[in-house]
């Protein structure tokens, strides 16, 4: 009996789910317009408007399906008598990267990519609203607004060194605290470990967190990283405050980006630009760099 049980237990342990490749026939889809627009208080590399189209699911193409030939403006708002006014005289034109001349630091970027609209001279400030206007070559017009909230700063940080990791370096556990104000706040944090260049596009970061102050409002909120960093690492933290609609978009984006398996819930992101997929987000950035002990 013991012998049988032993053999059988091995059988169970080696048993795991199997998988095989299958053919799935999906009908062709109509392309939809996708807009990713960002304005921020910290870096000109994070002010951009990316415009692309969706592609059929099984189309053998994993590139950015950019849309060229669009006219793109971003206008800062001014508050006059409790109304926000966007004056055309103050607007900035964002030009397709492939049409821009040489920009210091961006020399090496492939000019063949279309659909990335930039203006290296544009700067954004906290407590300001921005208007995005896009006119496409086919005549479609898209408009969206965002507001950059006040910057929230990280109050204190702590690093706990505990044990040696797989690469033989110290395990560095990071935690920090910040003071959440009485108003409702939404946060989005991007991390970049051992950066070797500027952060161009939020997608160039390594990891992200999107959260709000649902559980602790108007108090000190602690954040702790469960996975250790390595001794000697340099970590750039972009700790940002964003608006509620923008938060709702990035929250749904996070769920859409990590969606799979048997209990995946099919769903589409909560866009905050009418008529397209995507978001126009204004970021109030608090930047912090840490170098962990060797």
């Amino acid at each position: 009996m013991k012998h049988i049980l032993y053999i059988l237990s091995i059988l169970i342990i080696t048993l795991s789910a199997c998988e095989k490749e299958i053919e799935v026939d999906l009908p062709p889809s109509t392309p939809q317009l996708v807009v990713e627009a960002s304005v921020n208080t910290y870096s000109p590399w994070l002010n951009y408007v990316f415009i692309s189209n969706t592609i059929d699911y099984f189309k053998p193409d994993l590139s950015f399906n950019g849309v060229k030939g669009a006219t793109v403006y971003i206008t800062p708002g001014k508050i006059i008598n409790n109304d926000t006014l966007f004056d055309k005289a103050n607007r900035y034109t964002f030009a397709d990267l492939s049409n821009l001349g040489n920009i210091p630091g961006l020399d090496s970027i492939g000019k063949s990519i279309s659909g990335m609209y930039l203006n290296p001279l544009f700067r954004a400030t906290a407590n300001t609203s921005y208007l995005l206007e896009i006119s496409l070559a086919d005549g479609r017009v898209i408009a969206a607004r965002t507001h950059i909230p006040p910057i929230v700063s990280i109050d204190s940080m702590k690093v706990r060194y505990d044990g040696i990791g797989e690469t033989g370096k110290k395990n560095a556990y990071l935690s920090f605290w910040f003071n959440d104000g009485p108003e409702q706040n939404n946060y989005r944090m991007a991390l970049r470990n051992n950066p070797d260049s500027v952060l161009f596009g939020w997608g160039n970061a390594d990891s992200y967190r999107t959260f709000d102050d649902e559980f602790v409002n108007n108090g000190v909120i602690p954040l702790e990283f469960l996975r250790p960093f390595e001794g000697g690492d340099t970590l750039n933290i972009y700790f940002t405050s964003i608006g509620r609609k923008e938060f709702r978009f990035w929250q749904s984006f996070g769920r859409a980006a990590n969606n799979g398996g048997p209990f995946a819930t099919p769903g589409n992101v909560k866009s905050n630009i009418d008529g397209v997929i995507g978001s126009f987000t204004g970021y109030a950035v608090y930047f912090k760099r840490i170098i962990f002990d060797e």
């Binding site: 799935v24 999906l26 009908p27 889809s29 392309p31 939809q32 996708v34 990713e36 990316f50 692309s52 189209n53 969706t54 592609i55 059929d56 699911y57 590139s63 950015f64 399906n65 630091g105 961006l106 090496s108 970027i109 492939g110 990519i113 990335m116 070797d196 260049s197 500027v198 952060l199 161009f200 596009g201 939020w202 997608g203 160039n204 970061a205 992200y208 984006f253 980006a257 099919p266 997929i277 995507g278």
Partner: peptide, 20 residues
């Protein structure tokens, strides 16, 4: 099932000269 897809949270890795 999904019918289409798109690239989002776009970044550009300047050192490696490729989009993320």
């Amino acid at each position: 099932l999904p019918i289409a897809r798109y690239a989002y949270r776009v970044g550009y890795n300047v050192e490696q000269n490729k989009p993320e």
